[in-house]
Simulated assay, not measured.
Amino acid sequence: MATQPLTASPVASSVKSTIVRSKPRSQPFLRPTFRILDRLAPTLAARLAQRLFFTPPRAVLREEEREILDAGRRGTIEHRGDRLAIWRWGEGPRALLVHGWGGHAGQMTALVEPLVAAGYEVVALDLPGHGLSSGDRASVRHFADAIVHVAQGLGGIDALIAHSLGSAGSTLALSRGLVVRRAVYFAPPARFDAIWARFRGGLGMSAATWTRFQRRAEAWLGLAFAEMAPADLAPDLRVPLLVIHGTGDREVAVQEGELLQRRWPQARLHRAEGLGHLRVLKDATCIDAARRFLSTSKR
């Protein structure tokens, strides 16, 4: 693993310019164009859908997030031809922070100070195709592979804290043998049905093109969609889990977190009344619930 310390000004400007650059632009002609392709060239439509679905947007890095990243020890880990950006703070058992789809390590930084104070070495990463990491396409399977690889590169991790689709990648990683003592998921999906429906509806995709898309995507992933659903993987997992989910979440409904908690043998649920998809990551009560859960019987 190659590491390099963060310095205040050049790295800060590099981080900011890299992440702020590409909030996705609206594409008003995409749906009508796609529907024409869907009708006249369904194979081409399926190919376009695959590229659209697995290309993550780049999210904005906020100033307060950048400042916390600047205070960390920045490094990179090589993974299958990609360079994964990581940051580290503190010393002790390792807690790995995993952001969600279209996110970045900065979104997890409100957890850094409380976990360092609790005696953890905190590690955050930019997943493939996100933030400062290389690549332009990603998936739950890519997330899982990266999480396992980073954990191995660090010499193991004690705790796993993930958000949204990063939780799905973490669940797949755990199902493949990743060992952690405890896990915390913020706003996790239990199944992908709502994601598929939103994607199909946004493009106006026909059932026939959906079938082509699914066949192409599963061949590219080397994994069936049905093999990645967290709710279906959960019954075989024995890692104690805390699910933190906001009742005001418009991206991943709180019912998803409730379902995952029911299916996971050693899981409990913390309902964050009124909070949305990202606000749960900044809320002091939610962060304290995560800290207290992870500090129970800490190694």
Rank of each mutant, 00 (worst) to 15 (best):
R279E: 13
L275T: 03
S206M: 07
W210H: 13
A45H: 05
R51A: 09
P265I: 01
P24S: 10
I68N: 00
H270Y: 14
L127D: 02
V116Y: 14
T43Q: 13
R51W: 10
A224G: 15
F213A: 01
P240A: 04
Q255N: 03
P189A: 10
V252Q: 09
K298T: 00
R271W: 06
T3M: 14
A85P: 00
A253S: 11
G204E: 11
H277N: 02
L40W: 10
L259E: 03
V150C: 12
K16S: 12
R198H: 09
W220Q: 07
F199K: 09
A105C: 06
G257P: 03
L48R: 08
R31H: 07
L294V: 01
R25T: 05
L242C: 01
F34S: 03
E67V: 07
P235H: 08
S297H: 11
F186M: 01
R238E: 07
L40K: 11
V280M: 08
G201R: 14
C286Q: 07
T247K: 05
A226L: 08
L223W: 13
L294D: 00
A194V: 04
D283H: 14
R291K: 15
G155I: 13
Q214T: 06
A194M: 08
R47T: 14
W87T: 03
T285W: 05
K282I: 04
A124D: 05
L111F: 15
